[in-house]
Structure formats: structure tokens, C-alpha cells
Nucleic acid binder design. Structure first.
Lengths: 262, 262
DNA sequence: AACATTTGAGAGCAGTGCTCTTGACAATGC
DNA sequence: GCATTGTCAAGAGCACTGCTCTCAAATGTT
């Protein structure tokens, strides 16, 4: 009975499992478990490499197995389905872009809010250009039926959180957001209140985010991903040739709307 | 069986095809050509139906052939590859959303620019919600290597053109755009000049679109598609529950930026 | 009527996700 | 120490995919 549960859990997010199991036992348990974790990591690593090469739709579990050096059916000991492997890659991608954004924003001068906004925006775009297939995996058309929300929702929040933190810091020193004075319909106000409450755990001073600032922040997040999507998915073709200057300029424009500049 | 579906097809975009072919030969050419056209239309119609059901990644040429009533190899007489079929569906989707936007904007009160903007935005979103897989096909991750640009670029311009037309009409009566006074870097200015020149054919008064208005218009287009993408692809999950009010409110905010309201 | 072109069907290839069974190995209980 | 139990890699196999090739029938042209 207990074993059946451990099996079910082990099929999920493996890395956290190993942490919890090591926490429970003091050190890594059996050699079998270590081998299992190692092989699982190798599979995801190879899958990540192939994803970067051929994209999500062409990613083949058999091809991954071939490169790892085992037969396809053996992979099913570690991932119950191809979609589950893809879900793991989605989580990894969220973590990857989140790390990129966090690193960039920490490297920026903290009190220069506009620089921080440009840093996170530029980092996300640079990450997307360097890993277009991973970007498409998380922000493009959902490949499996619909992605498992429960595992992905946490790492997915990293970038928008970093973005909203800038807004909070701006509001703390009297910054004003473009749509501050526009009335928000009651239903949306209730939603935003709940959202703000949910953010209080990961955001220092989330209560400073009034409805206008929150909608403006969500819109900035939408604009950022929308612009990168347009660029990566070819919708700037025959419209804008120099994507760098276009992106930089529009990011500057958004900074104005966010009340971060001039 | 074939006739019953051909009736359905005729309601689509067949009329233009038959017009062009009749224009070329004086009247419909041989019976064989007519049959070929009819079967081609039936294939695309069935493919469109299956696309709406299972999505682009799961669309199978063999399954389409099965439903049409012929063997898979026969389909290759009409479409050289599955990607070519998808390209046709992309074109159809662009035409479809373009028609939806045009119909909506024509139904709105012409002098009420804000209403026109809300009409086109709402129409695009309504179309996307009604045809999520078609939206994902054109605005999501590119499925083939990269979509054939030359055939799709024309119908793809319909919606942004309708959007920019509103901006032009607004500027013609003294409307002001949010980022009007921000200087545009020289490289971008050159790009926007070229873009404006390219628009002069399809846009009445495109010369009124100064650099600020043009960047603002592009951004509004990005915001619109970005918001719909977020909604359809699940990125509003655990963020906003009532998508309708959220969308409406943000569209109203963008109207302010565009100088269309208050 | 004879010829040429176009079309549909079938077989087949290489590939896919996934399931099931089999035999080898390691961990555990008596 | 040995038998039991659980885990693992491998292989065969199923149903499916996109695509190519050949062949015969249908169709149009001369």
C-alpha cells in the first residue's frame, strides 16, 4: 500500500521527491532510488536538448530513449506518458525564464525602477530568443489537451511577480500609473482584491497595488509576452525589420504607462 | 454525399475561386477542373471541421481522407503535404477572423470611434473563443517549420488594418495618442516611414499616422492578441476568473491610450 | 478509335505513442 | 541462506501517422 503511493508520487515531480526523501532519511536512500533519480534527470536533460532542437510537436519519446541509450518502453518506467514528459519540460522552462528574469533584475540598480523594468523585460526577451521552442511551449498553443495547472502555476508566477514588485516599489515612493483614476467595475474589483490577497505571500507590499496599478501591471505583462510572441511567431514579418529597436522603444513606452519614467 | 457537403462549402470562400476560374476561361473550364476544385474544397472543409475539433497538432491527413471518402494517397493529388493543407487552413482562418472584424466594425456607429474599437476587439475575441484551435493555429506556436509568409501576409493584415483605420479617423478629427510626444529613434522612424508607405494602399489617410500613433496602434494590436492568447492558453488561470469583464475593462483602458475615449 | 493525362486505390516504408509479457536483478522477510 | 517481492530493461506487437510508389481505371483530347 505504501509502496503504491510512493510509486504514484515518484512518477510526478522527481526532484522534489528526492529532496523530501533525503530529508526523511537523512541521506539518499537506496542505490536504486539514486539511480532512478539520475536516470530521470538524464531523460529530462536529453528531452530538453531535443526540444530546443526540433520543438515540442516533433519531440519524440522514442528518439529521447534512443539517445539516452534505452528502449522506448523503459522510459515509461519514469514518465507515464509523453504529455507528462512535456509537462516536466514546461515546468523547467518556467523555472528557466524565471531564473533569467530574477538574475537580470537583481543585477540592475535597485533604485532605478525603469532600469529594473527594462532589465526584466530584456531578460525575458533574450531568454525567448535563445530558447524559442521553450517559449513556444509555455506561451504558445498548448500541446497536450490542456496543461496541468497545479504543477505549473507556481513557477509560472515568477516573472509577473518580479514585474509587479517593481510596480510596488514605484508606488511606495509616490509613483503614479496611467489608468489610476479610471473606475473599475465591481466584479473586477472583487477579483483584483482576491488576486492582491493571493499575491501578499510572494510580494512585499502588495497592498499598495490599487486596482489601477494591478490592471496596468497585468497589461504590461501581457504586452511583454505579446510582443515577444509576435516577434518569435513571425507576426512582425513585413512590419518591423529591426526587432531590437522596436522592442526597446515599446518597452520604454510601457515604462511611461507604468509610471516608471519621466 | 459529395453534393451535400459541396453546398456547405459554397457558403465559404468558394465564390472567389469560381469567379477567378470563370474569369480566366470565359466560363467554367472542363468538368475535370470543376470536379478537382470541388474535391479540393471538400477536403479543406472537412479539414477545417476536424481542426476545430481536435486542433492542429492532432489533425491527421488520413483521417480527413477517411471522412471525405477516399484513401490517403489520393489526397496527395490535391495537397502536396500535410503542411500545405495546414497553410490553407491558416489562410482560411485569417480570412475568417478578418471577416468577423470587418462585419463588426461596419455594424458599429461609424463616428463613435470608441465603439468601433470595442467592436473590432470584441469581434476578434468572440471569434477566438468560438474557434480556439483556429486562433491557436495563426497566433500560437507555428506548427510547420515556419509558415509560408507570402500567401498568408495579405489576409493577415485585415484586422490590424481595420484597427489602424480607426486611429486614422481619430487623428483626422484631432485625436491625440498617449505616446505622441515621445521621440522615436531614427532607425525606428525609418521603419515606420516604410510601414506607413506600405499601408497607404489599404488605408485611407495613412499619412496622418505619425510615429507615435503608429507605435501605439501596433501596441494595441499586440495587446489585443496578447490578452486573447492569455485567456485561451490558460494564463489567466488563478489570476482572473471573469474573463469578460476583465477583457472589456482593459479594452476600455487601451481606448484611452489610443485617444478614443474621454 | 487511339493516345495522353489525370485520378483513385493499394501496398509498403519508416516512424510514432503506448501496452503487454518476459527474464534479469536487487531489496526484503522468514 | 533462501524464498519472496518489487523494480527494471528489453522485446514484440498494436494501431496510428506522413509519405512514396506502382498500377489500373476513368477521363479528356486528337
Amino acid at each position: 500500500m505504501l509502496s503504491s503511493i510512493s510509486k504514484c508520487v515518484t512518477l510526478g515531480v522527481v526532484s522534489t521527491d528526492s529532496v523530501t526523501s533525503s530529508r526523511g532519511g537523512g541521506k539518499l536512500r537506496t542505490a536504486r532510488e539514486r539511480a532512478r533519480e539520475e536516470i530521470t534527470n538524464e531523460i529530462t536533460a536529453v528531452a530538453r536538448r531535443q526540444l530546443a532542437e526540433v520543438g515540442a510537436s516533433a519531440l519524440s519519446l522514442r528518439s529521447v530513449a534512443r539517445e539516452v541509450g534505452m528502449v522506448s518502453s523503459a522510459v515509461y518506467r519514469y514518465f507515464p506518458s509523453r504529455d507528462e514528459l512535456l509537462t516536466q519540460l514546461i515546468i523547467d522552462a518556467y523555472r528557466s525564464v524565471g531564473d533569467a528574469a530574477r538574475t537580470a533584475v537583481e543585477a540592475a540598480v535597485q533604485h532605478d525602477l525603469r532600469a529594473r523594468w527594462q532589465a526584466v523585460a530584456g531578460a525575458v526577451r533574450a531568454w525567448a530568443l535563445a530558447n524559442p521552442h521553450e517559449f513556444g511551449l509555455i506561451f504558445g498553443t498548448p500541446v497536450p489537451g490542456y496543461r496541468a495547472p497545479v504543477d505549473t502555476v507556481d513557477p509560472a508566477a515568477a516573472v509577473p511577480t518580479a514585474l509587479l514588485q517593481i510596480l510596488v516599489d514605484s508606488l511606495a515612493r509616490g509613483g503614479r500609473v496611467a489608468w489610476r483614476d479610471r473606475p473599475v467595475p465591481p466584479v473586477l474589483h472583487a477579483e483584483l482584491t482576491e488576486l492582491r490577497a493571493g499575491l501578499s505571500g510572494v510580494l512585499h507590499g502588495s497592498e499598495l497595488l490599487d486596482d489601477g496599478a494591478l490592471t496596468q501591471g497585468l497589461m504590461a505583462w501581457t504586452q511583454l509576452i505579446g510582443m515577444i510572441s509576435f516577434e518569435l511567431f513571425g507576426h512582425l514579418h513585413n512590419v518591423i525589420a529591426d526587432h531590437d529597436v522596436y522592442f526597446t522603444h515599446q518597452i520604454g513606452n510601457i515604462a511611461i504607462d507604468l509610471g516608471l519614467a519621466e
